[in-house]
Design a protein around this nucleic acid. Structure first.
Lengths: 210, 210
DNA sequence: GTCTATAAGCAGATAGAC
DNA sequence: GTCTATCTGCTTATAGAC
């Protein structure tokens, strides 16, 4: 988990980038020290500046990479032509899979947007974000047809995303409070895929009295 | 929102603490500069050290205050003797109310636990945390009695907390992505109380085929 | 108690040898 | 390309006047 999946070329430049990714994603821009990146990459600070001019530039590349990788997955599921139920299932599966492999990423994105919203909008975020309209229309149609219980679409989307993402954000907290060992927590988080699906579809069952 | 509700005595010491609270909660330990706290409190850096020895000490007091205020509310609802349905409603109401008045606090807690887990456990967290056991037992009883649809209790708790907290964490992100103006987002977040309740109770309806 | 001035330490960035 | 050594600037922290 949270390891480079591709390990591309193993040049120094790449090693630095990977090290930077690990640290930035966990500690954010302010919390990260160049020394720590250098240590993890097994080189010294001077080389960081040789390859990436400054701390901010390095951060920018890492952050862009994180966002850029996350976007297509979301777009794909939201904008696809699958029927609603399958779309929701696919979304939950994709989403939780993605996060499982990048545990710190949601925290990173949300935290950094909170702290440097201006900067994030101007330098990191891409212009064309996934549009949920299609999904929302689909949902309204199903409600009108009486196939599912009425619900304001935005709330459904927010509910689904919340249940997928939040447990990973709260993982360290939960580990402390519940005193759960790492392995138990991992197992629990894996169960989330079916748990969220069950919960959502249960909530969407049409009301027999209607 | 996010203003001191009591504004106790308005001594210098208090003004510093309040200023520190605002900044720390928004920017975290690393992102906060003593200068900014001093500016907001309308005094200079030297006084910060006069009243609170160091940045870390000041942070510690603020963080402890935040946690300490949040805990009893959670304990109260979880450990009360209300019947399950009312307990869930009370929990959602209390929780969303609490967060509405302290928008940055959940981000603060989760973010800081992520970045300094060791430090948090040792210095900030109190020893006696609220125990969800009673609630979990109550839930199991209701399931056994067939009053609600079977669900693993831990997942229900996680689902509820997720749906309450996450939208507030994602607020700045959502504002950017959806291009929603501040007012619209606030209105949406206010709807969450009933939205979450509806969703949860809909999901808990017993299955007619069972 | 509150200020100004300054010390001390750290982190980002550069120069220059190899 | 990679290193050591160094500079610069910023941030925390203290000394000392009022």
């Amino acid at each position: 988990m949270d390891k480079k999946e591709t390990a591309t070329t193993d040049t120094t430049e790449q090693r630095i980038f990977d090290a930077a990714h690990e640290v930035f994603v966990q500690k954010g821009l302010d919390g990260t020290k160049m020394q720590e990146i250098a240590d993890r990459a097994g080189i010294n600070k001077a080389l960081l500046h040789y390859y990436y001019r400054s701390k901010e530039k390095l951060y920018e590349m890492v952050a862009k990479g994180v966002i850029t990788r996350a976007i297509p997955v979301i777009r794909q599921t939201l904008e696809s032509d699958l029927p609603l139920k399958e779309k929701i299932e696919a979304f939950i599966d994709f989403y939780i899979n993605l996060i499982s492999k990048n545990t710190f990423v949601p925290m990173f994105i949300l935290g950094e947007v909170n702290k440097h919203p201006q900067y994030f909008v101007e330098h990191i975020l891409p212009k064309d974000l996934p549009q949920p309209q299609k999904f929302l229309q689909q949902l309204e149609a199903e409600i009108a047809a009486g196939h599912i219980r009425p619900i304001r679409p935005e709330h459904l989307v927010v509910n689904i995303v919340s249940m997928c993402v939040f447990p990973f954000l709260a993982k360290p907290m939960a580990a402390i409070i519940l005193g759960m060992p790492e392995e138990e927590i991992k197992a629990f988080l894996l169960e989330r895929k079916t748990a969220v699906k069950d919960f959502v579809f249960a909530a969407l069952r049409p009301d027999p009295t209607a």
